[in-house]
Design a protein around this nucleic acid. Structure first.
Lengths: 197, 197
DNA sequence: ATGCAGTACGTACGAGTGTACGCACTTGGT
DNA sequence: ACCAAGTGCGTACACTCGTACGTACTGCAT
């Protein structure tokens, strides 16, 4: 039976939040018990109490992002009624309102980087990507979904590497149209607004 | 005037090589004077002698890869005489003989990751990417070159995240064809071997 | 032979790290 | 009132790290 109760129930999640702040700012390799403790304004002892191991802390922090980062562009994709809607959703996910901020991309990049060495994180990553493929599954074949994922990540990566050179919409849209168009048998799918020239 | 000569002239480059080994195996954040010294079988003092600062060591090591990694797919691209050749070169650069090994991709990823926080590395990175754009420039407009770069990096990234699920050629080729095809005005460019169905 | 400049390296210091551990404090059962 | 269990935290230890620094060695000019 439970005895004793926490004085500060939000403390654990505050620590996780501070951890993510540190990761976003300086990367996972900069995460230390003491640094996060200072950022979250909790004593060092609290850190090891809630997260006995530094890896626990990092994994918990990364895990807490899964529910948050994943579904940003999920709804538009699920609601897409034709291939043109899919293209719109992808363009938005790349540079539009449902696209991640540079900070979010950096965070995502950190997870990927860390996941390359940690199987547990890699599994999380794989799950997220699988979800993404499943969302695309109803509208395009798997091989095309793979290409779309690759291009989407490539664009995000580009934004991260060139924060001062924003992509314009046509640059992003046309390649998506071309790839998604592969799903429409042998002639190009109907776009909503135009066909160039 | 030069006086005194090095007892072990290859030592410096051996250190650099060992540094790259460590980076490939465990990432840049795992690079330490002592670790690299042990790997290269040189005393610790040699490290600080050749590379007074750890950053010097890392930058020198990364810099030494520039001349090596860059031109793997440069020649085929430069020799491309039509858009079909370009597609072939891209497919090869993605999964074919001129494509980087998983280790190389990891290394490239490390550089990107590190470059996100270090302006000097970022500059190197930018230079490499600019070169890549310049190579594509003669055959496709800039905006398409950007998309190709993004997709290429996306594919490489995919290979890194899914080492056990190799991409088959058609999956890679068709999206490239579609994007490169955008460069050919309003109807699709001639492919060398076939047009599907 | 002697000095000197540059090479090469062994050692030690100070800072920062993850983690173990013990001591207060809180709370519910008796 | 008392105890035990669980919460929360301060401190200290063992370790690794980057870097500074003193010292030996090498080869050339004189």
């Amino acid at each position: 039976m439970r005895r004793g109760k926490p004085n500060d129930p939000g403390r654990r999640s505050r620590i996780l939040e501070a951890t993510l702040d540190v990761i976003k700012a300086d990367g996972i390799s900069a995460v230390s018990y003491r640094g996060v403790a200072a950022h979250a304004e909790v004593p060092l002892g609290s850190m090891t109490y809630y997260f006995p191991t530094l890896e626990d802390l990092i994994l918990s922090a990364l895990d807490s992002t899964r529910s948050e980062l994943e579904p940003r562009y999920a709804a538009p994709l699920r609601d897409a009624r034709n291939l043109a809607d899919v293209v719109d959703a992808l363009v938005d996910a790349t540079i539009g309102p449902t696209s991640p901020s540079l900070t979010d991309i950096r965070l995502y990049e950190e997870i990927r980087h860390y996941g390359a060495r940690d199987p547990k994180v890699a599994a999380v990553l794989q799950a997220v990507e699988d979800d993404s493929l499943v969302m695309l599954q109803p509208v395009v074949p798997t091989s095309i979904a793979l290409a779309i994922n690759a291009l989407l990540w490539g664009w995000w990566s580009h934004r991260l590497a060139h924060p001062d050179a924003p992509l314009d919409e046509a640059t992003v849209r046309k390649p998506y149209e071309a790839i998604v168009g592969l799903a429409a048998a042998d002639h190009s799918f109907p776009t909503k607004e135009q066909t160039r020239a």
